[in-house]
Amino acid sequence: MLRLEGVSAGYGRIAALAEVSLEVREGELVSLIGANGAGKSTTLRTISGLLKPTTGRITLDGQAIGGLPPREILARGIAHCPEGRRVFPHLSVRENLAMGALLRRDRAGIAGDLEAMYARFPRLRERSGQAAGTLSGGEQQMLAIARALMSRPRLIMFDEPSLGLAPSLVEQVFAIVRDIRATGTTVLMVEQNAMAALQLCDRAYLLETGHVLRTGTGAELLASPDVRDAYLGGAI
């Protein structure tokens, strides 16, 4: 479905990604793991069009999408749920969800999806008229996920969905990610919490200083000694 071939990108003269190649197949849940600054977020930002690749090729179903603006990427079915939630603090919860559906024109479909989000996240319904900035961290993460889903993506990219959440909420977020995949949406997820990410995913890529160091199924990477030493604190 999504394929990166030798993609490099960066900020100014600093290259944050060096020739990254990876693939996400239809229906898969793929994790990107690695230390801070390994290029995980940069990978997602390059895919969603916030950064332009300097070299390499990004294709979606065989069509080149590298360097397209974010609007075009979203229109092709890739939603990006950014790191740090990034809800619009002074927009209401309902408006935040409407922002997620900005490119859609099917009023009835949008209304139906809004209802589905409220059914799935009852807290959001209770707070639909409230400014998103007044929600708790966990509620904001639910809102960010729901907002990304409002575009009806075929592929949804999560950047650190569990960051800064209490342990019980972390569980909940991963359950939601699992649910999303179960409904047929393909998932590409960046996670600091390598253990959880590897247990959750079908396949994973381990990034280090801007390139892919290792790849395999979640179980393979969990069993790999250097992954365990470097990212799982040695013991499982």
Binding site: L50, R71, H80, P82, R86, H90, E95, M99, L102
Partner: peptide
């Protein structure tokens, strides 16, 4: 209006607004 909402969103967080499809 939609354009008004898009303007407010851009006001608050231009990058995330771009991710939502705002030009």
């Amino acid at each position: 209006t939609r354009i008004g909402m898009a303007m407010r969103a851009t006001f608050q967080d231009p990058e995330t607004a771009a991710l939502m499809g705002v030009r």
